[in-house]
């Protein structure tokens, strides 16, 4: 299989997020970037498929802070090749990024009959949030999202996929290749790679760097303003040392007749 994975960097939401003085973007000085979690699952699924059915995995990313570490990690996990599209992509949202990826693939004739393109099912860093479907549309290929399982049938050159609905219910679909998939979770959790292996990759591996025009039709939606949600103030906050807090919790649960 010709497996191509798109990975993008997103702000780590575990960190504090500060809104910039324009009121419309996040202050980049406060951001710690990390690979979009669903995209990491897409990397894992691609490597699993390569191990099962053979082929190569090409990782494609946009230039962003910390992206090199994400790339070397993906290479250490089993991606064969990495491409970084240079430029300042910070304010580009899903439709525009999808257009960039699609142009790259088309202009370089990278899609053949055995191509499966994988990326994360969603990201929470822009209003459109679902890059994978824009990508399917730009490439004019079948696209399915919220995928948690992929099986390749070499004779028919198609894939059987499972998509999540809700309440644990899933559905099975049969899809011709080439196709585009949004991965929600890989068949197995993303594998752990030791730091030493990632460091070795940094020394030996080569990231292909690519210049690219930024003149695109779709720039995404203009945001009027960003703001932090008002804390509902509903929660009674318990304070003290761990001992005191544990005592308070027991009191509350007793009062409410829960224990």
């Amino acid at each position: 299989m010709n497996l191509i994975v798109f990975l993008k960097m997103v702000p780590d939401t575990v960190e504090e997020l500060k809104i910039a003085s324009d009121g419309k973007t996040l202050d980049p000085d406060w951001l710690r970037m990390k690979a979009n979690e669903n995209d990491e699952h897409a990397v894992e699924e691609a490597v699993i498929l390569k191990e099962k059915y053979g082929g190569t995995v090409t990782l494609v990313t946009l230039d962003a802070p910390e992206v090199d570490e994400a790339i070397y990690t993906a290479l250490a996990k089993g991606c064969d090749k990495a491409v970084k599209i240079l430029g300042d992509w910070q304010n580009f949202t899903s439709p525009a990024i999808a257009e960039v990826f699609a142009k790259y693939l088309k202009e370089n004739n990278l899609i053949d009959s055995k191509t499966l393109i994988l990326t994360g099912s969603q990201a929470t860093d822009d209003i459109e949030g679902e890059l994978v479907y824009y990508l399917g549309e730009y490439l004019e290929l079948p696209v399915y999202g919220v995928v948690t399982y992929v099986q390749y049938n070499e004779n028919k050159n198609n894939i059987l996929i499972r998509k999540e609905f809700s309440g644990g219910l899933r559905g099975e679909f049969e899809v011709e290749l080439p196709a585009v998939l949004g991965i929600q979770a890989a068949e197995n959790p993303p594998r752990y790679v030791p730091i030493a292996k990632i460091r070795a990759m940094m020394k030996s591996a080569n990231i292909e760097e690519l210049e690219f025009t930024q003149d695109f039709a779709s720039k995404g939606i203009e945001i009027e303003k960003l703001y932090e949600p008002e804390v509902a103030g509903k929660a009674v906050m318990l304070e003290g040392n761990p001992e005191e807090i544990a005592t308070k919790i027991v009191e509350i649960l007793t009062d409410k007749g829960l224990i």
Binding site: T13, L17, T124, I127, G129, Y227
Partner: peptide, 13 residues
């Protein structure tokens, strides 16, 4: 809309 895991809200016209 809620973005960034519910930590930031954004308004659009």
């Amino acid at each position: 809309s809620q973005l960034y895991g519910g930590k930031i809200l954004s308004e659009v016209k």
